[in-house]
């Protein structure tokens, strides 16, 4: 297991946001964090790479407890794609090169350039390398941000709702990119998601959050109508369209 979390607790002004969180992810896996708004999904993600400081618990990345690592050392092991991304007037190559920041001592080395090139090729962004970020579409920009996180050469990739604000085609493309990267770069992807059907299509593992704690964690076997009804507070049925699992919510008194 590359990332193992145990007994994690986070509170905000003595109000418990997360308690008794326990889960683990292996390299190559895609873990979807699911739950209602306010369940603490983004908070959990930010605890994982020390942006927020948990009250207690352990977070092990490979052999290291992240609380014994400096922020820079954490950045060398975990890439983070925030929900909000702002940008100055820089090119795609500049933006991806920024991912090398945790590794750069004073100036860019040939190896840094090599890594950026490789990541740009893997995500099929080579043709864009000298375009400015403000000239890109939403889907392209999101891929650039993921490329930046991959250029960190992390073991774990954390993504906070990477598909919000994207159209259907780009949602699929971005998730395919993440899934492919997890496989090819042999890293664990931990993704906060809202769309259950997309989660079912792409994730290998699921973490259901409810009332500030883990309701269930595991593979397809935990994605039962009963569990999802309990977590989301909406009755759902699980149907199949051929091989594809589909979640259909039931709207009481609705169409």
């Amino acid at each position: 297991m590359i990332l193992a979390v145990d007994g994690l607790e986070f509170s905000y002004n003595s109000h418990a946001v997360l308690r008794d969180i326990k889960f683990a992810v292996a390299r190559g896996e895609f873990l979807a964090i699911l739950g209602n708004n306010g369940a603490g999904k983004s908070t959990l993600l930010k605890c994982l790479n020390k942006i927020l400081k948990p009250r207690r618990g352990t977070i092990m990345i490979e052999k290291d407890n992240i609380f014994n690592l400096s922020r820079l050392e954490v950045a060398r092991k975990m890439g983070y794609v925030a929900q909000m991304y702002e940008s100055g007037r820089v090119t795609v190559f500049d933006a991806v090169l920024l991912g090398r920041k945790p590794h750069i001592k004073w100036d860019v080395s040939p190896r840094d350039l090599e890594v950026v090139q490789r990541v740009l090729r893997v995500l099929d962004l080579e043709g864009f390398s000298l375009r400015y970020l403000d000239e890109l579409s939403g889907g392209e920009l999101q891929k650039v941000i993921i490329a930046r996180a991959l250029a960190q050469e992390p073991g774990v990739l954390l993504l906070d709702e990477p598909t919000s604000n994207l159209d259907l085609k780009n949602q699929l493309e971005v998730l395919k990119t993440i899934k492919g990267a997890a496989r090819e770069e042999n890293l664990a992807a931990v993704v906060v998601m809202h769309d259950l059907n997309l989660a079912l299509r792409f994730a290998d593992k699921f973490l259901l959050l409810k009332n500030s704690t883990v309701f269930a964690c595991g593979g397809m076997e935990i994605m039962t109508p009963e569990n999802l009804t309990a977590v989301y507070g909406v009755p759902v049925t699980l149907a199949r369209m051929g091989p594809i699992p589909v979640i259909v919510p039931f709207i009481p008194g609705g169409p």
């Binding site: 060398r76 925030a82 702002e86 940008s87 933006a95 920024l98 920041k101």
Partner: peptide, 20 residues
């Protein structure tokens, strides 16, 4: 200079890149 570049991408992104 690299810290300032990271900050240009937003506060949380900068933290994720190891910036204090």
């Amino acid at each position: 200079r690299w810290n300032y570049n990271a900050l240009d991408s937003g506060e949380e992104t900068a933290q994720g890149l190891g910036v204090q």
